[in-house]
Each structure stands twice: as structure tokens, then as C-alpha cells.
Design a binder for these strands. Structure first.
Lengths: 112, 112
DNA sequence: CTCCCATATGTGGCATTGATACATATATGG
DNA sequence: CCATATATGTATCAATGCCACATATGGGAG
């Protein structure tokens, strides 16, 4: 798949994954594709890094996965967000908004 | 000094430092203080992490440092931005703007 | 006078994050 | 038949920044 996440930003993957499983269950490969598509190619998450991230999120009970097998398709693991995941996602959004505002002020970034 | 940088964001320190030495020479401790002050306490960079970052930036010739000794004061190392540093800072700003926009779209962050 | 705090710089160890290389498996199209 | 897209997974590695610790000085509180 793609190249890199952001401007060498580490720490955005979690909010991205949580946001993408917020409304419906999705599997790993799909999440990776969506991050790239919806960001217009700006955010590219290495698919191989995505799976360990999903296991961590599941271990922390922010998402839950379940295997789905269909004839003529490779098995897929679909993840849904949990109640705790929603709380963490909400707090992530607040923190990111504050962070972006602060970075804008201190580093002189203009946002459209 | 403070607690943490952002929402567990790694990769923002470089643009912060470069932006703060953009207009005038500053020393490490001052930079750390300014990041915290100007961000209203949102961005707190561990001062101990700042010095290695400054050495890296100097090694990459994005900033240049010089020792200043005054009677009755501990020696300070003042850093200025280089021409190459300005180029990198400008590109960082562009990349961050794109990144923030993309994150806003994909992760559903609203920015004021 | 002594102790603590703010200032100021520095080192070493550590955890987390995500890149990268590699491996496996299946369906589809050329 | 082979390449490509889909789909998941493991192991190794580098970078980033947290944290503990160390050093040094000046000023203010007790």
C-alpha cells in the first residue's frame, strides 16, 4: 500500500481507526484503504502496521473483532467499536482539536 | 517541566523548534518554556528531550548554535535558523496543513 | 545560613509507534 | 500461467519522546 502516515506524525493511527469503525464494522484491509482514500492519499498507513494496532485496540477493549467467512472469499475479521472505544474516541477528538489549535498558534500553521 | 507534547503525537517537536527560532536566536530552555506558554499549556515538551532534538537539528544544519557566556549566569547556547532550516520549516508547514485537513476529514475532527 | 526553586544544560535507559521485509492464501483478469 | 488485488499475519528495526538522574548557578524564603 502507501508510503507514510503524515508529516512523520506518530500517534494519529488510533483516532483514525476508531473513527472508521465508529458507524459500522470494518475489517483491517478495508480500514487501510479508507484512510488512504478519504484523505486523498495524504494519510497512508502501512497495512502491516495496521494489524498489530488492531490487536492492541482489541486488547484494550476499544474495539471487538469477529471472524466472517464467506464462500469464495478469504476470511475477514470485522471490528466494531465498543462503548469504551467511543469514550476514548471522543476524548481523542477533543485532544486533537486542542493540539491542532496550539500547533497553529505556536508553529504558525494556517488552516483553511 | 511539563507533562506531554500533544495527544501522544510524536513528530511535532521539529516544526515547533524551527518555528520558535525563525525570527530570533533562542536557547533550549527558553524554547521549552515558549512552547508551553504560547500553547497555553497544551504542548509540554520534556526539556530533557529537547536537547537531543537541538543537536539533531544542528547536525542536519537546520539550525546553528553558539555559546553565550555572561557574568553571573550559566552559559547558554543560542540557536538560529539556517537557510536550509527555513526551507524545511516551510515544507513542514505545508505538510502539516495537509495532514490536519486530512485528519479532519477522516477522523471527524472539527477545528475552529 | 541553609534549603529549595528557577534557570540552564546534559546523559542514559526505556516504551511506543509505525516502517519494512517477509510469509501465507484466494479470486480475478490478461 | 502469471500478475494483481484482496486479506491477514510475524519479526526486525529506527525514530521519537518520556523519565530518571546528574551538574551548575543565582535568588528568595525561612
Amino acid at each position: 500500500m502507501g508510503d507514510k502516515l503524515g508529516p512523520d506524525v506518530k500517534g494519529s493511527a488510533e483516532i483514525l481507526v476508531l473513527a472508521l469503525v465508529e458507524d459500522r464494522a470494518r475489517h483491517g484491509y478495508e480500514i487501510g484503504k479508507l484512510i488512504e482514500e478519504r484523505s486523498g492519499g495524504v494519510l497512508k498507513f502501512h497495512i502491516a502496521s495496521l494489524y498489530p494496532m488492531l490487536y492492541r485496540l482489541e486488547k484494550r477493549a476499544l474495539i471487538t473483532g469477529r471472524w466472517v467467512e464467506k464462500a469464495g472469499q478469504r476470511r475477514k475479521r470485522y471490528y466494531r467499536i465498543t462503548a469504551e472505544g467511543r469514550r476514548v474516541l471522543a476524548s481523542h477528538r477533543t485532544r486533537w482539536e486542542e493540539f491542532i489549535l496550539a500547533l497553529t498558534r505556536v508553529a504558525g500553521i494556517r488552516h483553511a
